[in-house]
Structures are given as C-alpha cells and as structure tokens.
C-alpha cells in the first residue's frame, strides 16, 4: 500500500540530467526525509511530483492513479500540497485570505465537514499559532511567521501528502523546534503523509521515519535515519572526495 509512487523518473534540462531513473515509494502516514547536497535534484523531484514540471519521463502515481497528464492545480485538488523553499505568499492579501484560496479552490464540501471555509482557516491559524496575524498583510510578517504561513496555506489544501521544501531555512534553533513540533503534531493528528526536504540534519533526522538521499539526480541511500547517516556514500556526497 503506497500513497505516492515515483517510477523511473528522469528529467533533463537541455544537456543536463537533473534526475535520472528515480524510483520512490511513500506509505500513507509516513514521515519521509529527503536530503542531498545543493543541486542534487530535490526541488526538481518535487516539481515533477506536484506538476510544476510535466515534461519528464517516467511516471508519478498517486493513490493508484497515474498523474502524468494532470496539470499542477489538478494534482493539488487530488491532495498533493507543497510549500515553497522561497516563500511565495499572495502578497496583496491578508494571512487569512491566503488560506482561503486553497480552501475555496481545492477543498471539497465533503472535506469541509459542515464547517465554513472561514472556520477552517481560523482553525489552521490556531494550530500554527498565526491567529493574531489573521488580518495582517504578508509584507509585515517575520521570517518565522512567513514560514508558518507557507505551511498553513499548504495545510489549508487539506492534503493527503504534504511536501515541505526547506521550511526551516534561516530559522533559529528554537524556531526550528517550533516548526518540528507543529509538523509532528499534524502528522499524528491527521495521519497525513509528510515529505520533508531539509538541510538542517538535526531536524530531518529527528523528524523522519525514513530518509532518502539524492546525489546528482540519483537515489544513493534509502533507509532509517541512523543507517543513512552512517552510509559512506552519503558522507562522500556531502563532503566530496
């Protein structure tokens, strides 16, 4: 039983091979860490999964359905949600209005479960401790609030699979703990699958049940955090020869 399956995924940019023959399976409710040095293809991989990039070879299967022909917004409606490495808020809107966009466009009446979209937005802001920023424009947010908004908006899509792309870059150690706590709580409360791309090793190792390491567009390790950290190939990829 898998929620996400990536089969023989290959993506080239001109002559440069960003991903070559990637195979990956993610189980429902799993917390998966995705690591790898800069330029190893992590963001390209999630761009292919979320549909931002569609001219790849191979296939992306979600809940048994082949997504290859679906554009990004249709994949989002199927339940794949992502946050962006560089936050991309809707800057002319308030925090709450940001959350209303996915709630209005991607969430079904069934998922709303009798509540209004406003109530859902309020609940998510409470979970992520953004409640008092509800009516602020995004321009005035601090770094950590911006990261939280990015996650909150991704959560407002009511996803089955949440992909968090470096949600902790540039945060202080206590702020990292904050985000970690929120993500683990989300995973335990809603059984949502989370894929975390992260450079902060401490965070990704304590969060993940399983870790996949990419290097130069290939999977070089795929097992428990402890084993991956001891894997000589991973060490080599990070430190070089």
């Amino acid at each position: 039983m898998t929620v996400l399956e990536v089969n023989k995924l290959t993506k080239k940019f001109g002559g440069f091979t960003a991903l070559s023959d990637i195979n990956l399976e993610v189980k429902p409710g799993e917390r998966l860490g995705l690591i790898g040095p800069n330029g190893s293809g992590k963001t390209t991989l999630i761009n292919c999964v979320s549909g931002t990039i569609r001219d790849y070879q191979g296939e992306v299967v979600f809940n048994g359905e082949n997504l290859n022909n679906l554009v990004a917004h249709k994949r989002a409606r199927r339940g794949i949600s992502r946050s962006f490495q560089i936050p991309k808020p809707f800057s002319s809107m308030t925090v709450k209005q940001n959350l209303l966009i996915p709630l209005e466009y991607a969430v079904t009446a069934e998922q709303l479960d009798g509540l209004t979209i406003e109530e859902h937005a309020d609940k998510i802001m409470e979970d992520l401790e953004l409640k008092d920023k509800s009516d602020d424009l995004t321009g005035g947010l601090t770094q950590i609030e911006m990261r939280k908004l990015e996650l909150a908006r991704a959560m407002a899509l009511k996803p089955q699979l949440l992909i968090s792309d470096e949600a902790m870059a540039g945060l202080s150690s206590s702020e990292v703990d904050d985000i970690l706590k929120i993500l683990i709580a989300l995973n335990e409360a809603t059984k949502i699958t989370i894929v975390m791309i992260e450079h902060i090793m401490r965070a990704v190792m304590s969060f993940s049940e399983r870790v996949v390491c990419l290097d130069a567009g290939k999977v070089i390790a795929n097992s428990t955090p402890n084993e991956v950290i001891k894997n000589p190939a991973v060490e080599k990829a990070y430190l070089g020869e």
């Binding site: 549909g51 917004h73 992502r82 991309k88 809707f90 809107m93 209005q97 966009i101 466009y105």
Partner: peptide, 20 residues
Amino acid sequence: RGLEALRDNEQAAESMGVPT
C-alpha cells in the same frame, strides 16, 4: 480572488488548486 492570487504569484496559485 483566484485572479488576485495568480497575479500575486502564479506558481503558488496553481499549486493551491487555482486553474490559472
């Protein structure tokens, strides 16, 4: 509201389910 989202950031709007 969908137009506004796509004006602010097209890629983000698309990945939030807006058929841009």
